[in-house]
Design a protein around this nucleic acid. Structure first.
Lengths: 263, 263
DNA sequence: CGGCATTTTGACAATCGTCAATCAGTGTGG
DNA sequence: CCACACTGATTGACGATTGTCAAAATGCCG
């Protein structure tokens, strides 16, 4: 499978939130790309207990980190979207303390870790951007803990939607009025710590309030301002450098990006 | 205030869980130490929104990361114990997305960030150990999210105690039968996402089960095995290299450590 | 069309939160 | 030494949010 350049767009957009990458940086990153591969929905990329291997970057699809308890309950601890790493720095810890699984069919590229190690020495901006991504993941975890620990079910769900909307918008996958959101109600419940049945009730309430509609695999936002206010959402914890860009609905074509960045 | 060497013991013990430090590493770390200072209980070290400044290491006392909601509710997202950093890598993100406050009176040292930056280049083991500490923090956050999202109040509290016992044992501050634990029931509730009143009920239940007693500022563990089993606690997510050492009740004297490490 | 996953509904129960009062422990000043 | 204040712990009554169970409805895909 050939990795076309356009498919790196979400990744580059995301990193642009951390640092201003130069053309040289981008080309160097391309040089680290290894083999790409597909995985169908509901498969594990890595399971808890395994020792982390290759570094993988998601190009397409939804995946998640999760932990399963002995009684079968599952907690999703992160969503991995196009442009996110699966196991960038976690590998340093030795064995995985959680699993990573796909939600939809996904497309990945491997990154040659030796090349990447070298890059972080020769291209300090890249090193910085990669650590930024890891630290933002941690910040998101803190925010999730606040939601699950302190807020009511309805607010939790609203907040999750706000966050996903922003993250998808950063990578050019969401407009102001909605986005593709391939999560089941079970997934949502396992994310915010409520039962599937209650997720259903909450979604109906949010719809009745005129805030959102979750139909099929798509989230429609009827009242963006109201939703943000209801969820008490502030994107500060995402540490974006260019919040103003989030308004732009149109994805930037990668031709455009490469024009700008590669001399 | 003079930083004696002995007071670094928890820090060095903790890092030994990540990598085997050489005498040179330890001496280099000592060279990065700056001014030390005290702070009384219930004060903020850094508040949300501020831009992170100096890098600080806790030498003595309990502190925590937390977020406050607009309705006054608070969620503690991490405990900072002796040997833990307050703002090691978080500074890379610019502004703080949470606050750090003391629980007991605390003693800190500043670290010269320029010296530390240099260290991470010249002493790769140190760089590795510092990132390990950050990644373990993230792993703990994931585990907390699982607890708060999926488990019953009683199990949440039991699990928290297990974790704190292990972490305190690593730094030589806990035996098999208990430890100093200066948390109020309010603190515990704000950690595991339950009300203060319910914390009280849960503690009584745990005592009635013969597992633990929390009296004053001390946690007594009456049935360590039973507690671990009840909490479904596994220390894997703490990524310790020397779990066998946790059994040892006696703190290693720093004279001993320096004898071993400094030629 | 038929099978399967997902969503939806209703009834009921349980955990947990809230409120408000009391009790216990600790430190302070007279 | 004791009254006092203050914080933290404890108790009880009550209610609300949320979970569980089980069934029915809907949607999706071969």
């Amino acid at each position: 499978l050939q990795v076309t350049k356009a498919i790196l767009d979400p990744f580059l957009r995301k990193l642009r939130q951390a640092v201003e990458l130069t053309g040289g940086d981008i080309c160097a990153l391309q040089g680290a790309l290894g083999a790409s591969h597909r995985l169908e929905a509901h498969r594990d990329l890595i399971s808890e207990g395994e020792s982390a291997g290759a570094i993988r970057l998601i190009l397409e699809g939804f995946a998640c980190r999760y932990k399963v308890l002995d009684d079968g309950r599952r907690q999703i601890t992160a969503y991995l979207l196009p442009g996110d790493f699966c196991d960038l720095h976690v590998g340093m810890l030795g064995s995985m303390d959680h699993s990573i699984g796909t939600i939809t069919p996904c497309l990945f590229v491997n990154l040659r870790s030796d090349v990447l190690d070298e890059l972080t020495v020769t291209h300090s901006r890249i090193a910085r951007a990669l650590w930024w991504a890891t630290l933002v993941e941690e910040a998101i975890l803190r925010q999730w803990l606040v939601n699950v620990g302190q807020r009511q079910a309805e607010v939790r769900v609203a907040h999750l939607f706000c966050e996903l909307l922003v993250r998808l918008r950063v990578i050019g996958r969401a407009g102001q009025n909605g986005c593709e959101l391939p999560l089941t109600q079970k997934d949502i419940g396992e994310t915010v710590g409520i039962s599937t049945v209650h997720v259903n009730r909450v979604l109906q309430d949010l719809r009745a309030k005129g805030l959102i509609r979750l139909t099929g695999r798509r989230l429609e936002v009827d009242d963006p301002v109201g939703l943000t206010r209801f969820a008490r959402f502030s994107p500060n914890y995402l540490h974006l450098r260019h919040p103003e860009e989030l308004v732009r609905e149109e994805p930037v074509s990668l031709d455009r990006l490469l024009q700008l960045y590669c001399p």
